[in-house]
Simulated assay, not measured.
Amino acid sequence: MIHVQAFRHIEILLVEDSPSDANLTIKGFLNAKIANNLHWVEDGETAIEYLRQEGEFADAPRPDLILLDLNLPGLDGRDVLKEIKTDPNLKLIPVVVMTTSTDEHDILRTYNLSANCYVTKPLDVYQFIEVVQLIKDFWLAAVALPRE
């Protein structure tokens, strides 16, 4: 017997406070050859509300992948990562940290908080889009993502 899975878009949550970085990331995923829905929130508190489907996000889809900036206003990315990875309902969602920080302490701390990947954002626009394409190629084309 052959089982055919119904087609489903990959749900991505982008947590990014910089509109220019968010726009570059969105452009990169729009050019993808893989169907995806990208949802953008600008701070850590909103990200947690989205993930817990609270308030205006009551009907928000569960992300298959989270792209998380570290340096966010209010609840920063490290705190968001800790919340995700200690919540039994969220901990299996892969989290790709995307940040400008190259600090070894940030890298180590992020992996100690169970990030799945740490990517340093390039300053060059074309390199930035290329990095987004690499993330897309790996996480959306090569990796089997957990589905709930």
Rank of each mutant, 00 (worst) to 15 (best):
36 N>Q: 10
121 K>G: 12
70 L>R: 09
73 P>C: 07
29 F>S: 05
67 L>E: 08
9 H>N: 15
48 I>E: 04
22 A>W: 11
118 Y>T: 02
57 F>N: 00
33 K>I: 02
62 R>S: 08
142 A>H: 13
33 K>W: 00
33 K>G: 09
80 V>A: 02
75 L>A: 00
141 A>S: 15
8 R>W: 04
70 L>S: 04
71 N>K: 03
95 V>R: 00
108 L>E: 14
114 S>A: 12
84 I>L: 00
49 E>F: 01
130 E>G: 10
11 E>C: 03
127 Q>G: 10
86 T>F: 07
41 V>L: 06
71 N>W: 10
35 A>T: 12
125 V>D: 11
77 G>H: 01
137 D>R: 05
69 D>G: 02
131 V>P: 04
121 K>C: 11
61 P>M: 03
142 A>R: 11
79 D>K: 14
30 L>F: 07
103 D>Y: 14
35 A>Y: 12
139 W>K: 09
44 G>I: 03
52 R>E: 12
50 Y>T: 01
77 G>V: 07
84 I>F: 02
87 D>W: 08
57 F>H: 06
137 D>I: 00
59 D>Y: 12
99 T>K: 02
115 A>T: 03
44 G>L: 01
59 D>L: 12
95 V>S: 03
22 A>T: 12
6 A>Y: 07
90 L>Q: 12
125 V>E: 13
91 K>V: 10
4 V>F: 12
139 W>A: 01
133 Q>T: 13
128 F>E: 14
102 T>H: 06
92 L>E: 15
45 E>W: 06
69 D>V: 06
128 F>S: 13
129 I>V: 15
31 N>P: 03
105 H>K: 14
98 M>P: 03
